[in-house]
């Protein structure tokens, strides 16, 4: 549904996005991650046809964005990072205006506007001037604006920023409910949010692609970690653990929590296999298994190992118009 090939965007001497390629299948919800200034917003702007790429090809819904911008724009709903709305219009009037622009038939306009207001939970403010709305409401009017006309592709630049916890939950479930029906790309700094909503992630840093795969395979590639604590002779246990299937490496961590226990950190090649084998082996030898913890790596661990810890602090991105 969305395909970027060698996407490059230069602003003068600065290369904002450098030869990035990725694909998003129809119905997928894809998280777009990266530290501030990584090129996320630029990439999204190219996908929407707002700015042309310096090099490379972008395909949305089977159409070349550079060649058919108008047809692509008909199929894309976009929520920019700063949610720039017309403050002098009323919510309903604004959505009607956008609906007409997006080609919603005259007869279906009232229903379409009502539908997106319902979905974004802004129906109670339909008569308010947009400039008088709080940040959370404005954000949701922006989302309603992207949803109207039922576009096949949604590109959302930090859709939950500025919302309160209840609203965040609502918007997340709204986006999640689109899975399978629409193709969604959303950028976010909240990794737990991406893990919750998205089936795959694209991670970029400094304009370069670091990863583009499903969350499971990203986490599996990292392997996760296990921690074993058992009442057994440390040297025997360590030697045996290293030979078990699914275990990549073993490191001794000294005595365990209980007296007489030895603790080991394990980097598995296959988490669930290693966990099964370790439990069976320790119990089979008649040793007392004190603790076996850990598991597959979380998205956060995967992200941090890819991007580096220094960049991981979630900060609001500076608006760069």
């Amino acid at each position: 549904m969305i395909k970027a090939e060698n996407l490059t965007k230069r602003y003068g001497a600065v290369t904002a996005v450098n030869a990035v390629s990725f694909e998003v299948a129809p119905g997928e919800i894809c998280g777009f991650l990266g530290p501030n200034g990584a090129g996320k917003t630029t990439t999204m702007r190219v996908l929407t046809g707002f700015i042309p790429p310096s090099q490379g090809r972008v395909e949305v819904a089977g159409l070349d964005v550079a060649r058919d911008p108008l047809e692509v724009k008909k199929r894309v709903g976009y929520l920019p990072e700063t949610t720039p709305l017309y403050g002098d219009m009323r919510v309903e009037e604004y959505l009607q205006f956008v609906g007409r622009i997006k080609g919603v038939a005259r007869g279906g306009l009232t229903q379409a506007v009502g539908g997106v207001m319902e979905a974004a939970r802004i129906a109670d403010r339909r008569r308010s001037l947009i400039r008088t709305l709080s940040k959370g409401y404005r954000q949701r009017v922006g989302l309603a604006q992207a949803l109207i006309g039922g576009p096949e592709v949604l590109i959302l630049d930090e859709p939950t920023i500025g919302l309160d916890p209840t609203q965040i939950k609502d918007i997340r479930s709204l986006i999640k409910s689109l899975a399978g029906k629409r193709t969604v790309i959303l950028s976010s700094h909240i990794l737990s949010e991406v893990q919750l909503i998205c089936s795959r992630v694209v991670i970029i840093k400094g304009g370069r692609l670091l990863a583009s795969e499903s969350i499971e395979s990203l986490a599996a590639a990292l392997g996760g970690h296990l921690s074993v604590s058992a009442k057994a002779p440390a040297d025997q246990l360590g030697e045996a653990l290293a030979r078990l299937p699914g275990v990549k490496s073993v490191a001794a961590r000294g005595p365990g929590a209980e007296p007489g226990a030895a603790r080991f950190e394990i980097v598995p090649s296959d988490v669930s296999l290693a966990r099964r084998e370790i439990a069976r082996f320790v119990v089979g030898r008649g040793w007392e298994l004190v603790a076996l913890t850990g598991g597959a790596a979380s998205l956060e661990e995967a992200y941090l190992s890819l991007v580096g810890r220094a960049d991981a602090h979630p900060e609001p991105e500076a608006p760069h118009a």
Binding site: F50, E71, K73, K74, P80, P84, Q145, P319
Partner: peptide
């Protein structure tokens, strides 16, 4: 910044 939205609508 509303120019950004204006340019991403099918116009």
């Amino acid at each position: 910044g509303s120019l950004e939205l204006l340019f991403t609508w099918p116009l």
